[in-house]
Amino acid sequence: MSNYFENPRLISVEQKKLIPVFMEEITSDVRKLVLAINATDSQRCLELTHKISGTSISFGISILANKAELVRMSIQENSLERAAEELKGLRTVLIELQEEAKKMA
């Protein structure tokens, strides 16, 4: 497992202090995404994957942004079934991030 928070977007101590804000928001958004997929609410899924992707890019966590994009593409292709599959990959990365954030706290 690589250290996702050691990246060029998070250099200073002040920036690293924003990691809990990022984690709280991303965890909440992924939870909402699970609910939206279960409810087959495509519009909400698109909004949430867009937000997860943009926030992850801003914190240099490109792997999470890519996973969110895969979910988004599946939804755009009207395949909620595939979106649910891609969501598993996104949640795996999220769990790794949560573990890493815990170690840093």
Binding site: L18, V21, E25
Partner: peptide
């Protein structure tokens, strides 16, 4: 921005 995390990063 609808992301508080992004607003805080940009604010920094």
């Amino acid at each position: 921005d609808d992301s508080q995390a992004i607003n805080e990063m940009n604010s920094y």
